[in-house]
C-alpha cells in the first residue's frame, strides 16, 4: 500500500492548487472536476448524445481490425523470414524502406486511397502494429537453438514438422512480445488517426478533439485517462493470455 502514498499526496496537492485558485481550471481542471467530466462523458456524451461507451467500442473495433490483419500477416511472414534466409533476403529491403516511415505519416495518403473511415484508420493501425509483430517473430525464429532443429531431424522430422513443431512453439514467446509491442503502437496510432477525422462520429481520439473544440479540458483529461486505462487493460489481457499458453520457463 505504501507505493500508493506518493500518488495520493500528488492528487491532494493538485486538488488544493485548483481549489485555492492558484491554477485556473480552464488550464488544469482539478481531480474532482475531471471525475465529474468523466461522469458527463458517460451520461451526456461528447458531443452530447455520443456516449463514452460507444466511443470506446468504435475505437476497439478499429484497433481490432487493424491489429488482427497485422497479426494474420505479420506472424506467418515473420516465421517465413526467420525460417528461410532466402525469403529474408528477398523481403528485408522492402521492409527496411517502409518501416522507418512513421505510421502517422501515412494518414494523408491513406485518406486519399481509402477515404475517411474505418478502412483508412484500420490501415494506419495495421502499419503501426505490423512491423513489431513481423520483426519480433522473425528474430524469435532466428534465436531458436539450431541444436533443437537437429534433434528434431534425428527423430525423422520433415521440414513441415520442423516448422510446426519447433519453429512455431519456439518463437511463441517472441510472437507474444511482438503482439504486445504491436498492440501498444496500435493504440497510440489509433488515437492520432482519429484526431484527423472519423466518419462515424465516434472514437476516443475524436472524442477528446471534440472536447478541445468546445473547451472542456476536464473531459479531455478524463478521455486521456480512459485511453490509458484501456491500453493497460489490453496489455494485461495479453499477459494473462500468454501465461495461460506459455507454461514453460
Amino acid at each position: 500500500m505504501e507505493r500508493y502514498i506518493p500518488l495520493l499526496v500528488l492528487l491532494c496537492l493538485w486538488q488544493a492548487l485548483c481549489s485555492f485558485g492558484i491554477v485556473a481550471s480552464y488550464v488544469l481542471p482539478s481531480p474532482i472536476e475531471i471525475a465529474i467530466g468523466f461522469w458527463d462523458l458517460l451520461t451526456v456524451g461528447m458531443p452530447p448524445g455520443h456516449l463514452l461507451y460507444y466511443h470506446i467500442l468504435y475505437s476497439l473495433y478499429r484497433v481490432s481490425l487493424g491489429f488482427s490483419v497485422a497479426c494474420v500477416l505479420g506472424v506467418p511472414l515473420g516465421l517465413l523470414m526467420g525460417w528461410s534466409p532466402r525469403f529474408h533476403n528477398l523481403f528485408s529491403p522492402i521492409i527496411e524502406i517502409v518501416r522507418p516511415v512513421p505510421p502517422l505519416a501515412w494518414i494523408p495518403i491513406a485518406i486519399v486511397w481509402l477515404g475517411i473511415g474505418i478502412k483508412s484508420s484500420a490501415f494506419i493501425i495495421f502499419l503501426g502494429a505490423f512491423f513489431p509483430i513481423l520483426l519480433n517473430t522473425a528474430s524469435g525464429v532466428l534465436a531458436i537453438n539450431p541444436i533443437l532443429i537437429d534433434a528434431a531431424r534425428t527423430l525423422n522430422a520433415t521440414q513441415r514438422d520442423i516448422f510446426f513443431k519447433v519453429l512455431v512453439p519456439g518463437s511463441l514467446p517472441s510472437i507474444f512480445v511482438g503482439m504486445r509491442v504491436g498492440m501498444g503502437v496500435a493504440w497510440m496510432t489509433l488515437v492520432a488517426a482519429e484526431f484527423s477525422g472519423v466518419k462515424e462520429g465516434y472514437g476516443l481520439g475524436f472524442m477528446i478533439m471534440t472536447a478541445r473544440d468546445i473547451q472542456r479540458p476536464d473531459e479531455i483529461l478524463a478521455g486521456m485517462l480512459v485511453i490509458g486505462v484501456i491500453g493497460f487493460a489490453v496489455d494485461w489481457l495479453f499477459r494473462t493470455w500468454e501465461s495461460r499458453i506459455r507454461l514453460w520457463g
Binding site: 541444436i147 537437429d150 534425428t154 527423430l155 525423422n156 514438422d161 513443431k165 519447433v166 512453439p169
Partner: peptide, 28 residues
C-alpha cells in the same frame, strides 16, 4: 530415426513437458 543421437547439450524442447519430449519421435 534408425540412428539416434543424444546431444551433448540435452537439446530438449523447452516448450514440451517431459512426456511430450519423449513422445516427439512417435508424434512425428
Amino acid at each position: 530415426n534408425e540412428v539416434g543421437l543424444v546431444f551433448q547439450q540435452y537439446a530438449l524442447f523447452p516448450w514440451r513437458t517431459m512426456c511430450e519430449n519423449i513422445e516427439m519421435g512417435l508424434e512425428i
